[in-house]
Design a protein around this nucleic acid. Sequence first.
RNA 1: GCUGGCGUAGCUUAGCGGUAAAGCACCUCGUUGGUAACGAGGAGACCGUGGGUUCAAUCCCCACCGCCAGCUCCA
Length: 580
Amino acid sequence: MTTSTTPARPEGPLADIAHLRHTAAHVLAYAVQDLFPDAKPTIGPAIENGFYYDFDRTEPFTTEDLETLAARMREIVKADYPMTGRRVSREEAIEAFRDNPYKIEIAREIPEGDPITLYTIGGFTDLCRGGHADSTGAIGALELESVAGAYWRGKSENPMLQRIYGTAFVTQQELDDYHAFLEEAAKRDHRKLGAELDLYHVDEMAGGGLIFWHPRGAIMRGLVEAFIRDGLRERGYLPVVTPHIVHENLYATSGHLENFGDSMFGPIEVEGQRFRLKPMNCPGHILIYANEGRSYRDLPLRYSEFGTVYRFELSGTLHGLTRVRGFTQDDAHLFCTPEQLQAEFEQTVDEALRLMEAFGFSEFEYFLSTRAERGATDEIAEAAIRNALESHNLPYQIDDGGGAFYGPKLDINLRDAIGRKWQLGTVQVDFVLPERFELKYRGSDGQDHRPVMIHRALAGSLERFFGVLIEHYGGNFPAWLAPTQAMVVPISEHQLDYAYEIRGRLRARGFRIDTDASNEKLGYKIRHWKTQKLPYILVVGKSELADGTVNVNERGIDEKRTVSVDAFAEELAARIAAKR
RNA sequence: GCUGGCGUAGCUUAGCGGUAAAGCACCUCGUUGGUAACGAGGAGACCGUGGGUUCAAUCCCCACCGCCAGCUCCA
C-alpha cells in the first residue's frame, strides 16, 4: 500500500519516454490539423507524466472532441509514419507558417546560428527543435486527458490558448500502471480523506482557503505541534507570541507592503489608523528583539512561534489544505552574529531532518534559491547555505533568482509514500531586515554591530504539512498520531460495562481510546472502524470478559491476538514511543 | 483573477418543462449477534443564489457564488 509503483519516475532512460511523449504531442497536433483546421498549433512539449499541446482556437474543445481526436491519433500511430526532420532557413520557416503568428514568433526568436528545423509525420509538419521517437508507431498507448486554458508563453497579458493534456507510454501495461497510480493518489486525496475521517472542512459561509479544524484534526495538529515544540526547546529556542493584526507601518518598514502588498489582505481602518492582518511573523519577532539593547553575549537568540498568518491568494488557486489563505507556520527567527551564521544554519537543517524522518519521510531534495540582485551579503549568505549542505553531504539544486526579497533561501522538498514531490520547509538567511529595522547588538569591542537573521519554518504551514501527512499515510496514521488509537468494541451489550472499564484503564495511561456502544452486530462495527482506519480495534466478548483480556484486531494484520489489557497497553506505549 | 467543466438530502448519485428518487449515514423499535454492511419503520431537499423566458422552471437563458481541472501567482 505504501510502496506502489511510481510511473511518474520510470526506471528506464527518461529521455526516451520524453521523446515518445513529444512525438505524441505532434500526433495530437496532426489530428487537430485534420479535424479542426481552424486551430493554430503553438507549442507542445513533453511534461512529467505526459505531454500537452497549446492551440489557438475560438471554439473550446469539448470532451467529445477529445474522444474524436484520440481516435484519429490512434490511426496516425497505427500508420507508423516516420518522423523526418530537415533544416531550413529562417525565411523558409516563416514562410511555411505564414498563417501562424505563434510559430513565426518562435522562428524569429531562434538565436542566429542555431539550427531551425521542421519535422514531418505523414501530412503534418511542425516547427520543432527535435527529440522524437523514430516513428509514430513507437507509441504503444496514448490517451487525451483534459482541456484547460493556458496563456501564450505563460503570461497573463497574452491571449489565452487551449491546452490539451494527454499521456503516452511504450506499452499498454505502463498506461494501466499509470492509471493505478492516479487511482491510488485519488484515494489518498486529503480533501476526500479530510471529510471521510472528519478531520477538517472549509466552509462556504466563511470563505475559501480558511480551515476549520475538527476535533480529530485538531488533536493531530496538537501532536505535531508538541513534537516540534519539544525539538525547539532542546535546541534553545524561546517561545514568543505576536499579534495577528498590527499597524501597517510595521510592514512598510519591513518592506513587505512594497514587495508583497498584492498578496496581503487590505487595510482595516479604525480611528483613522490603518491596520493589516499579518502576512509573516518576522517583523513581530524583530520588534521583540529590538525592544531592548542586546549584547553579543545574548546571541544567538532564537524566537519561535506557531504563528498564524493571512495571505491573499487568488480564489482559483485555493486547494484543500495545501493552498490556503490563513495558515500557521512553525516559524522561528534566529538573530546571530555573522560568525555564528554557519553553525546556526546547520542546526536548522539538522532539525528539519529530525522532523521529516519522524513522519516517515526519507527522500529529500534541496534547492538553493539565490537572489536576483545579489550584493556582498548575499554572497556570505549563499556561502553559509552551501557550506551547511556540503558539510551534511546533501546534494542540492540551484534556483537562480528564486530567493526571498531579503536574501537567498534553502527549500527542502520531499517525496511521499507514493513518490510525489512536496515543497515544505524553508530556511532563509537575511541581512536586509536587520538593516531596515536598524537592529544591533553590542560587541565585545564595545561597538554596535548588525546581527544576521535566519528565517526558518520546517513543517512550513501546519495546514499544508497536515495535508501532506494525510496523503503520505493515506489516512492510516501511525498510532502516535492517530486521533483515536483504539476502539473497544463489545460483541453484545453484556460486555458493554467491561468495554467501558477497559477504556477507562487505557485512558488513565494517557491513550486515546473510545468505546463503541452502538446497537450493531460485530461485523458492522469492525467494518465501520476499519473504514475509519483506526490502528487498533479491541474486541471483547464473553471469553475476554471472563479472562480480563482483549482481542486485538490490528490495522493491516489479519491474525487476531488475545492479550491482557496491560500487555496491550505496553505494546501501544512501545509503538507510540517508536513513532510507528 | 483567466479558460473549461460541475453545483439535486450529511455523503455518493438518479431524474426531468408539470415543485423530486435511491444507497449509505441519522433516529426509533425489534434483535444480543465472535472479526469488513442484522431486520423493520421513520425523519431528512426552498434541486447553490438572484433575475429572465414560459400557463408552469430543479430542468431552458443570463448574472453572481462555490467546487473541480488547468493557467497565472506563490515572501
